[in-house]
């Protein structure tokens, strides 16, 4: 192995894999593999070791200019420091929530924050409607205003069990436990195979072989 990889210059925001592995469901070698993925994503447009929103959009949609409400929300939640970029530590800690072994409570809480568009601590009816409209727009689906109102009303009356016009975290948790498919997208099976998809030793081995 040698010590070549540890001598490489790490980018700002880089954190040691042992630290990140201790705080997340990932092993050290999985964090190292995630660093390979991170390097790829963070250098796709601006090679500065940070994931910018356009790079995130490019990875998700193969289009750097495609705006999407939900991708924006994910980006904002990953960008814990709120400085407009995703650093490596933020990337790993946030993806940890999507690990198949991460606690369900963490996934439920993350989804709540995702849908609490205006950071009020509640999912409000207007927010739910805004998200439904965004999804319909994204999918080129057309529904009449009446039907949209009915969908939102029905869902809201099912989830807002206290009937106060907003969904709190407790109501959200009960609603998700009743409808587990709502957080299906909070689990990425890929994360269990990340060391196979992005083996972290390939590049440095190649460099050593060529020397």
């Amino acid at each position: 192995m040698g010590c070549y990889p540890s001598k490489q210059v790490k980018t700002p925001g880089y954190e040691e894999p042992t630290v990140l592995a201790a705080e997340t469901p990932f092993t050290v070698s999985e964090v190292e593999a995630l660093y390979e993925l991170f390097k790829k994503l963070s250098s796709s447009i601006i090679d500065d070791g940070l994931i910018h929103k356009e790079e995130f959009q490019l990875a998700l949609f193969k289009n750097r200019n495609k705006r999407n409400l939900f991708a924006d929300r994910i980006f904002d939640l990953f960008d814990v420091k709120r400085n407009g970029v995703i650093e490596f530590g933020e990337f790993v800690r946030s993806l940890g929530i999507f690990h198949p072994n991460a606690p369900v409570e963490d996934k439920i809480a993350f989804a709540f924050r995702l849908y609490d568009l205006r950071h009020t601590g509640f999912i409000e009816r207007e927010e739910l409607k805004e998200m439904v409209l965004a999804l319909l727009h994204e999918s080129d689906l057309i529904l009449s205003d009446d039907v949209i109102e009915q969908i939102v009303d029905k869902t809201f009356s099912d989830a807002d069990t206290k009937g106060d016009g907003k969904i709190d975290q407790e109501e959200w948790k009960a609603f998700v436990l009743k409808h587990p498919s709502l957080i299906k997208n909070m689990t990425l099976p890929y994360l269990k195979d990340i060391t196979i998809v992005f083996p972290s030793f390939v590049l440095s081995s190649e460099v050593e072989d060529s020397e």
Partner: peptide, 26 residues
């Protein structure tokens, strides 16, 4: 399925913007 029986959260969870699996495509 009639639209009124759709769960709005189920609907929005299908957004491509929430499907992070595309990050892993080589």
């Amino acid at each position: 399925t009639a639209p009124v029986t759709m769960n709005a959260f189920e609907l929005i969870s299908t957004s491509q913007g929430l499907n992070l699996s595309s990050l892993f495509e080589k």
